[in-house]
Simulated assay, not measured.
Amino acid sequence: MPEVIFNGSAGRLEGRFHPHADKEAPVVLILHPHPAHGGTMNSKIVHTLHRAFSDQGFTTLRFNFRGIGRSEGSYDKGEGELSDAASALDWLQSINPQSHRFWVAGFSFGAWIGMQLLMRRPELEGFVSISPPASLYDFNFLAPCPASGLIVQGLSDTIVSHESVGVLVNKLRNQKGIKIDFETVENCDHFFTQHLSNLQASVSRYLQKRMQTFPQSLAS
């Protein structure tokens, strides 16, 4: 996968960019878990998301938040990381001028950042959030949530409670005009240990369903 470097507000950001052969293919930005707890763009769930989206015909970008790998800057408690994600989306749009479909996906901390980006960028038409940290961070900014998406949670997650994610899902489902798919995985921890194939299958099924509304050229 080609290595890329693009500019962020705190300096250069390191990423891995995988363009689809179709210049009009949908594009997804994939965000990694907490930078202060070992999260990188090479995290297993991030790579699983890349495979699921790529297999369904998406151009993908995953990158390291500031201070991780070769990305410049230092951890900024979410505010700077949201700026990084916005810079990454700007870069994606600049090099994919023929694409008009943009998504965001994230795992844990990355899901929190991704949902904030969703509120700020109306061109994002869909999202996938894995283990969103609803018991650790405030998600009240989703009022209303601007796009439909998928949330996946392990039922044996000891970092983020299943109950808190369920409350978030119910709140989003009460909003008009969007549809939230919610899937749970039995005996599955926060990191989907031994369940990555189940996760990939869940995301792939959801994307196949959503892509039925895409132009046929993008689904091929």
Rank of each mutant, 00 (worst) to 15 (best):
E3H: 04
V4P: 02
V4S: 00
S9P: 06
S9N: 08
S9Q: 10
L13H: 04
H20W: 05
D22I: 02
K23S: 10
L29D: 07
L31E: 08
H32W: 13
H32C: 04
P33Q: 05
H34C: 14
P35Q: 03
G38H: 11
T40V: 11
I45Y: 05
H50G: 07
R51Q: 15
S54M: 14
D55R: 14
T59P: 10
T60P: 14
R62C: 12
N64I: 12
G67D: 02
I68L: 05
S74T: 06
S74A: 11
G78W: 12
L82R: 03
D84V: 08
L89P: 06
L92E: 04
L92Y: 12
Q93D: 06
S94H: 07
S94A: 15
I95T: 01
P97V: 05
Q98N: 06
S99E: 08
S99C: 06
W103L: 15
W103V: 07
G106Q: 12
G114L: 11
L117E: 11
L118M: 11
R120L: 15
R120F: 01
S129I: 00
A134H: 03
A134L: 01
D138S: 01
F139V: 08
F141T: 00
L142Q: 01
A143I: 00
L150S: 02
L150P: 01
I151L: 09
I151V: 13
I159E: 15
H162K: 08
H162M: 00
S164V: 01
L168Y: 07
V169E: 08
V169F: 14
L172M: 15
N174D: 11
I178Y: 06
K179H: 11
K179N: 06
I180M: 08
D181M: 02
F182Q: 04
D189V: 10
F192M: 10
F192C: 09
Q194E: 15
L207K: 09
S217E: 12
S217F: 12
